[in-house]
Write a protein that binds this DNA or RNA. Structure first.
Lengths: 237, 237
DNA sequence: CGAGTCGTTGATTCTTTTCAAAGCCCGTGG
DNA sequence: CCACGGGCTTTGAAAAGAATCAACGACTCG
């Protein structure tokens, strides 16, 4: 149970469960549309837009966020290759989706997808599982944002990205950040200054190494895991 | 779009979409089991438990929460009459579920439910919608916890409860809180002291009235809405 | 009536935010 | 090729909001 909890901490990604197999099945079931290529900082859709398509990330990173009227922003998820964007039962999108890198998206007409899902339990289950994974991720992030301090939040994020690498066969100790400090701040509910200071602190105490601002090397994974689990002593913060 | 956003803020409840109709259909499709009666503070299940049943609240309130190892607790949702508990694609529960009032739950064997959902698209869609609503609620709460200050968080909660009353045909200005200050604190990621002080502040400036500690009367709904939307001036905090 | 839980209030501390400024990286263009 | 400009990151000092520590009052239940 402990291991399971850890493995889900702010796991913004869940490619494993919905990756290649689901994509192939969807390919053959939903009429193929030309993929959409988005420039960095370009929006896929906005909150309130009618849902015409569901998207699946083929390449790049897309951030999903909500805002308050005075501009405060909360990123609720980062979508990476394999992840679905825009799933849900409502008629309108409930959040904004913005590419944060150059990204390529597979476009699935919402109506057709709904149709297929109703007649093909297998596809329906894929979507159900994807939605379920997003709910897990959202609730884990809620625990992170609501209960962890700045250091623990960043540790949890780095670990989640490291595990993603692991699942994808990449080096789990080497993390190439596709998001800016501002994106990380809005995801973890901190300010850019605090994020920056926390990176510096983790670097200075030898937990991580910063090749440059967007390339993190994990030096002491154990410490990160203790921090994320809420087991670190006060002195280590 | 604005109105829609507002109507979803930390909407821990979403009975409308999954209430009576779905319940009836499920009744006829899944073998009926005796309802489970839970005392206040009794647990329905714990994180890591294998999922044997899905539950639907018939009466009372159940809180869903996650914890860190040192005891810090984050309530991720309050489930009220009509709400499903335990939906998801994993084999184990990803959170704890504890009744916070006397509660009656309908028990649905997970296997049978899965079976029925696969053969009956209508039931499948009901579950999909319920899951989708929970995802919306989780992300709204994320915005609340991550970006709003103490006063705004409480305002958002009170408004969500008020809207629930409205949907159920009850008086939207009269809110009977089924949760303690500690529950509210762990839901909004505050301390009991801060929750208590914030209630006092809202009472003193005439926004609400406290008949007693668990009965709130909304006096100035407009102010609550401005607070929750992030439109209030600094002076009003 | 006493024990215990829950809620409120006050004083102080602390983490993070805010405000300010400088450094760095990189692409553009002279 | 190097100067310039702008965005992103880092660092410092001060301020603020919420947490912590402490105590008391209210209500409930044996």
């Amino acid at each position: 149970m402990l291991a399971m909890t850890l493995s889900q901490e702010i796991d913004a990604s869940r490619p494993s469960s919905v990756a290649a197999p689901a994509a192939q099945r969807l390919d053959s079931s939903v009429r193929r549309m030309p993929p959409k290529v988005m420039q960095a900082r370009e929006h896929v859709f906005f909150e309130g837009d009618p849902i015409t398509h569901i998207y699946q990330v083929e390449h790049g990173t897309v951030c999903l966020y909500k805002t308050l009227h005075d501009g405060r922003r909360q990123i609720v998820d980062f979508a990476h290759a394999g992840d679905f964007i825009g799933l849900g039962a409502g008629g309108d999108h409930a959040f904004n989706a913005q590419a944060i890198t150059l990204a390529r998206l597979r476009c699935l007409p919402a109506g057709a997808l709904h149709e297929v899902a109703c007649h093909n339990p297998d596809i329906g289950m894929q979507l159900y599982r994807a939605l379920s994974d997003q709910l897990l991720a959202a609730r884990d992030l809620l625990l992170t944002v609501g209960q962890r301090n700045a250091t623990e939040r960043l540790a949890a994020l780095l670990l989640a990205l490291s595990r993603r690498n692991e699942r994808n066969g990449a080096n789990p100790a080497r993390i190439a950040l596709s998001m800016t400090r501002a994106d990380i701040a809005d995801f973890l509910s901190l300010t850019v200054e605090t994020v920056s200071r926390t990176f510096t602190k983790l670097r200075q105490n030898g937990t991580i190494e910063l090749a440059h601002s967007s390339l993190v090397v994990i030096r002491d994974r154990h410490t990160l895991e203790q921090l994320a689990a809420g087991e670190a002593k006060r002195s280590a913060l």
